[in-house]
Design a protein around this nucleic acid. Structure first.
Lengths: 191, 191
DNA sequence: TTTCGATACCCTAACCGTTAGTGTTACGGT
DNA sequence: ACCGTAACACTAACGGTTAGGGTATCGAAA
């Protein structure tokens, strides 16, 4: 486990980025389903197998920075100020995430996602992962003693909030509305 | 639109059933991923295209009676007694559904589902559909005036309850625990 | 410096779910 | 008795994904 930043890792990162950029460009130009893997690989000047060594599936090309999102919610729980209650921290993070997804320039990507069944399904499977890690983070906090079922329920609720808010007319207001409900559910489980 | 029960419809139903039975048998014998579509079709003595005219995908072979489930929750809302509150009706239906899924004999099937990524993803996409129709049913009830976001949030919550309860050590108790949270969330939106 | 293991990449050829295209049969209403 | 059509069949392909097996470049130990 040596430190990073050898020429190798830089080249690898560059290849990955080139693939992702090429794919996104082609997808936006001609539509997700209309662009094939072999074509993306050719345009990015890599072999198909190389593409799949960087991305586990065609859908993963679109959700390139999924791994970031994966941890942000969990971090919001484990990294919050020692005396801060859970819900405000989660609400704040959710606001930031929703703002990020509804920023200018992101719209075409989301339109593309909503237009493809397989992309929507992939996004759902991501939510399951996110909910799982969030539930683990909540369950691990010694300050909040709740049952495993309660943690998982709340976690599922929170990640769903992201999807629901994205589709709402006023995403920011939707986050607040949903979090009102989440807090009521959460407090109903207080011992 | 003539009435049913011609020889034709019986034959069609028989073909569909034979395909589903064959598929489930092979899946349980040798594992979901280890059995190919061509093999199922051959064993059921139909053409591959015929199989796909009855089932939209390989996963749909496993969730054969999905369509039933699709409407049960919505029915629980629209078909409840005129004066019955929403939540008890949903809770009752959810109890019935969970009991059905945890009945003896269903265990191997669920073990198979949990063992396959594509089956789990398919189940999730079903949940989205179910949540959508449930949300529509709730939103359509004139007695419950809630925002669209609140309806969708609660609907997502309810369908998630099914998945969470199935995985819990005591599914029936989990349903009650989760519904306690759902009711708190629901009542927090009362005008 | 030389050597050497690791790894990033390449190519070919397939596998598998799924669909299009094109018939053929047999049912059901007229 | 006839015809429209629904159900099914066959072949061939498409597109995502993976296996198998090879080359080259990097990084570090010898």
């Amino acid at each position: 486990m040596t430190v990073q930043s050898g020429r190798r890792e830089r080249k690898k990162a560059a290849t990955r980025q080139k693939i992702a950029d090429t794919a996104l460009r082609l997808f936006l130009e001609r539509g997700y389903e209309a662009v094939g893997i072999r074509e993306i690989a050719a345009e990015a000047d890599v072999a198909v197998t190389t593409l799949f060594s960087h991305f586990a599936s065609k859908e993963a090309l679109v959700f390139e920075q999924d791994a970031d999102f994966e941890h942000r919610l969990a971090q919001a729980v484990t990294g919050r100020a020692p005396d801060e209650p859970l819900m405000p921290a989660l609400r704040r993070e959710m606001h930031a995430m929703v703002r990020h997804c509804t920023a200018d320039g992101a719209a075409p990507v989301w339109r593309m996602i909503d237009g493809s069944t397989s992309l929507r399904e992939y996004e759902e499977s991501m939510r399951l992962r996110h909910a799982k890690s969030l539930a683990a983070a909540i369950a691990a906090d010694p300050g909040l003693s709740r049952t495993a079922t309660a943690c998982r329920t709340i976690a599922g609720f929170v990640v769903d909030a992201h999807a629901l808010a994205r589709e709402a007319a006023d995403p920011e207001a939707a986050v607040d509305e949903i979090f009102g409900m989440i807090e009521a559910a959460w407090e109903s489980t207080a011992t």
